[in-house]
């Protein structure tokens, strides 16, 4: 099966101390993978490396079989990679919900009106059209998470990287996010420390340890 992401012998060190070493993982086309691990095990760092936001200490990342030698190589795949930040406030850029969801579309060169139309359709799809004109920073935790997801899904990315998607959500919101994730067709890597949440998303599970990724199920 063709792979969307190949991680080969990846290591990351902070001041000579290894956060993780020699990690290898292949994520096939439309496959969903979950990575669990203790706090501070490097889950977010690993995801940021895959997204091309920070550089690994050693090892190789391939996106659609193309080796990413430096961070600039990721630029041409930016529209194909959707990255959900751990804290939704970090992800928001534009002031209102609609403007923020349309943000990436406009930057990908879409006409403003067309971008708003697509963003509106995404809000309807996730049943949050009532939030359209709200200021993003003043939404509840659950609403912020769904809006942040909308801002990514609107691009229809081929690779989805989700950092703690269930962060600070109540049971109702978690279920909603799980349903959204189960309905997505992209290759997905989810990192989380919540095993219960991951169990309800149809995906392969790995545990991140200092020595590498261990397949759980």
């Amino acid at each position: 099966m063709s792979c969307s992401v190949n991680i080969i012998d990846l290591s990351y060190k902070i001041e000579d101390i290894a956060l993780f070493e020699n990690i290898s993982l292949d994520v096939s086309h439309k496959e969903k993978v979950a990575i669990v691990g203790a706090n501070g095990s490097g889950k977010t760092t690993l995801l940021k490396i895959i997204a091309g936001l920070i550089k690994q200490s050693s090892g190789e990342i391939k996106i659609f079989h193309e080796s990413m030698k430096n961070l600039n190589d990721f630029d041409k795949h930016r529209g194909d990679i959707g990255y959900l930040f751990q804290d939704s406030d970090d992800q928001f850029i534009a002031p209102t919900v609609l403007e923020d969801v349309a943000f990436s579309l406009v930057n990908m060169g879409l006409d403003k009106e067309e971008a708003f139309q697509k963003a509106r359709a995404q809000l309807v799809k996730l049943e949050i059209e009532n939030l359209e004109d709200k200021i993003v920073y003043r939404l509840s935790g659950g609403e912020k998470r769904i809006v942040a997801l909308a801002g990514i899904l609107v691009l229809e990315p081929k690779i989805l990287l989700l950092d703690e998607p269930s962060n600070a959500l109540d049971d109702g919101c978690k279920k909603r996010v799980q349903n959204i994730l189960n309905s997505i067709d992209s290759s997905t890597i989810i990192v989380s420390h919540e095993l219960d949440f991951i169990k309800k998303v149809e995906c392969k599970e790995y545990e991140l340890t200092q020595k590498g990724l261990l397949l759980i199920s």
């Binding site: 936001l53 920070i54 529209g79 930040f85 970090d90 403007e99 990436s104 930057n107």
Partner: peptide, 19 residues
């Protein structure tokens, strides 16, 4: 610092559409 990463992750090329 995170804002800079967010701009990169979301493909910022100088455009912010205002409604």
């Amino acid at each position: 610092n995170v804002l800079a990463q967010s701009l990169k992750a979301r493909g910022f090329r100088g455009e912010i559409a205002s409604k």
